[in-house]
Amino acid sequence: MAAVLLQSEPTETFADRRFRFHPRAALLAGLILLGALIVFALLAPLFGSPYRVFADGLNAQGLPLGLGAPGHLLGTDEIGRDMLARLASAGRIDLEMTFIADITSMGLGIVVGLVAGFYRGLVEQVLMRITDVFLSVPTIVSGLALASVVGEGLTGIVVVVTALYWAWTARVIYGEVLRLRSRVFVEAAVAAGVPRMTILRRHIVPHLSSLMLVLSALNAASVVSIGAGLSYLGAGVQLPRPEWGNMLEEGENALGYAPHLVVEPLVMIILTVLAFMLISEGLTNRGPTAREKTWLDK
């Protein structure tokens, strides 16, 4: 048995082994994918203006050009604008929105979770009941309602997404803080007379850092889809400024004769979500317990 295993080993290529055994393969893949998306978005000016209507942008029947058209690699839209330029320009605003809203919602959630978990009593009750309220509202409907109040554009969507998502982070962080509080080393610090803020800073927050990383990657994945989703529904980033969500909505009408108008922004959204999911997966498996190999991994 062992001999068979030994024999089979050299036939595996280095790449095989790396993919199968490297615990950070997912992290690596996610980071590469995200990096590629960021580069694509940053290079947007190279692809020309997203608003320029090309005279040769439509075919003889007045329909959009498909994939691989000369000069328009990803085709054109219904009025003859270059899809590549529009997708890249949209990517910029989508990624910007994702990073900002991820940071704000995570930040708010972390602060609320820490405070509620560490200061018990009334503070905890009030904060967690508020959190429960935010957890229980239906995302899309309340998002749309809120968007109509806070206004459109990048700021509006960041506010809406933050309001919709901070409570999830707050819940998870709160639970983890409660777990850490009861650890003996925290009690030892209390027994030694260490002030609360010092305990929080030295014994609670450092133990949350890896969880925060995983959470923020997961959170980003949700933020991408809800941000694009709200724009698709007419809130958030407004036409003519291209954004993957409103591009989807715009292309919808042409689904019958120009499916690439829907498929392309959709693929961008999926790739971005996938990138964040892979990163969070990779970060999860980076934990000290996950790093140990079991007999199953051999």
Binding site: R183, V184, A188, A192, V194, P195, T198, H203, P206
Partner: peptide, 25 residues
């Protein structure tokens, strides 16, 4: 404490662990 594996913060150095009560006061 009873369990020395639980009673020391794994992220701190001995300097921080033993010095913590001194800093606290």
């Amino acid at each position: 404490f009873q369990d020395p594996y639980e009673a020391l913060d794994p992220r701190c150095t001995l300097r921080q662990i033993v010095g913590e009560p001194l800093m606290a006061h």
